[in-house]
Amino acid sequence: MRLLTIVLVVIAALNIVVAAPSNEAATTELPEEDHCDHKLTKSNKYLDYPFWKKFFKHLVPFTSSSRSKMQFFLFKRDFPDCGRELFANDDETLARSGFDARHPTRIIIHGWMSQGKGSLNRDVKTAYLSLTKPRPNDTDDAISEPKMMAPLYEDFNIIVCDWSKISSNVNYFGVAEMVEDLGYLLAEFVRYLHMRADLRFDDVYLIGHSLGAQIAGSAGKQIRPHRFNTIFALDPAGPAFREQSDEYRIDASDAHYVESIHTSIGLGFEQPVGHSSFYPNFGKDQKKCYVYGCSHKRAHDYFAESINSTKGFWGIRCERLSKKTWVLLDNDGEYRMGGEPSDPKNGTFYVKTYDKKPYAMGTIKAQAEASAQPERVTEVYH
């Protein structure tokens, strides 16, 4: 009897979650000038309500719908936190959105079980848009007030690709089977922007984490004969893809330049998959990562920081003879990981990082110079 009562309580709670009105839906009634399709800021709330509503829909029979598998939200310098939704084949919405093909386009694709307002979307979006703001001149005298320099970029088209209606399904392998379909939707959306907004494919970078990286690779295959400029594959998903041929997983042929960042061996893909593959801390068990999935997430933490880091992440060429045997070729120079714009190179690289933010250590030469400087002492006069 007690078990039956618990089951009834759980079912009632799930029905409340499914039936409750969505905060996202409520915003559609706002006036156009105050309209916000997708607010993307860090929340004090522990849970993302819209995400968990989608999650529970997959658990309750007959409530899950694939009507809209993928949504696209545009962010720009003038509206950095409030995304405007774009739809393929909707010219009127596109004309009002503020999308400008003269600006570089960066498309962010989250992974499995990622929340729509997750840290990948927030951090990468914010890092890119920070490049559109004035910046201090680091060469000025530290004592005087630094002079501000012009922004590095006029603006970006930052598009967050939200496929959480599918990714919230706890059945990972079922979701992985939909990568081709999702890649098709993304490719068709970009093709629409090319046809109706004069978007140049060579101005487009795809930034995908985990399954999002595999979706990026699929979109790259399906956009042919056109080619994206760059795909950044952030710890691309390994399960269900390790035994696949290049035709069914991300590969160097999916864009003019493909760069992968490998940070875990359980959830990620161990083998090099792009023109260049970076292995921070040998690609496994990132520093001070004690929770399952932390090392996997660290890939997009590193990438977001690389976009506007003054030090940058620099790797040295290496050879992976086995999982435990690496040969570091430190006489072959240093190569930048991530960053904006992308910096094409070829090979496999080892990167060392700090164990907390900021993670970037800069070049080996910069590290040596910093360690050689005498410790600064602050004198206090009474």
Rank of each mutant, 00 (worst) to 15 (best):
S65V: 07
V170E: 01
Y192T: 05
A95G: 04
F201K: 01
D246W: 09
T230V: 01
F349N: 08
S68L: 03
Q367D: 03
M361P: 11
H194M: 11
A12D: 08
L30S: 08
K45W: 07
G217Q: 06
N15Y: 08
R249I: 01
I108F: 08
I223K: 11
Y354G: 07
E259L: 14
N229W: 00
Y172W: 10
W163T: 05
E247V: 05
V60M: 12
V351Q: 07
L94I: 08
F241R: 00
N121Q: 06
N44D: 13
P239G: 09
K53S: 10
S306F: 10
D332Y: 05
P225M: 03
W163I: 03
D343V: 14
P134C: 04
F269S: 15
N89W: 04
D332K: 15
I108V: 15
Q244G: 03
E29K: 12
L206N: 00
K54H: 12
M178E: 14
I231W: 00
M361W: 06
G183C: 02
G274F: 14
E379R: 14
K324V: 12
P151K: 04
R249G: 02
F282D: 07
K352Q: 13
G174T: 02
Y153E: 15
A95I: 08
F55S: 07
D90E: 02
L234N: 14
D78L: 12
T310F: 09
N157R: 01
T5Y: 01
D37V: 04
K133R: 02
R317K: 15
Y153K: 09
Y279L: 14
I265R: 09
N308I: 04
V124W: 06
K221V: 04
H110A: 06
F55N: 08
E92R: 06
F173Y: 12
A26P: 03
D330M: 12
F173L: 12
Q222L: 15
Q222P: 11
S97V: 11
T126W: 07
M70V: 15
V190N: 04
A370Q: 02
S130K: 04
H35K: 08
E177V: 13
A304Y: 00
A252G: 11
N229G: 05
E32C: 06
S65R: 07
L234K: 13
D251F: 02
H262F: 14
D330A: 15
S68D: 02
E32L: 10
H256T: 09
N331R: 13
A370P: 03
E180T: 14
A237W: 08
W326G: 00
L8A: 15
P104H: 13
P136D: 07
L30C: 04
H38W: 14
E85R: 10
F62C: 13
R227F: 13
Q367G: 05
A176G: 10
F99I: 13
P104C: 12
Y172R: 06
D48L: 05
E92N: 10
D343F: 02
C82R: 01
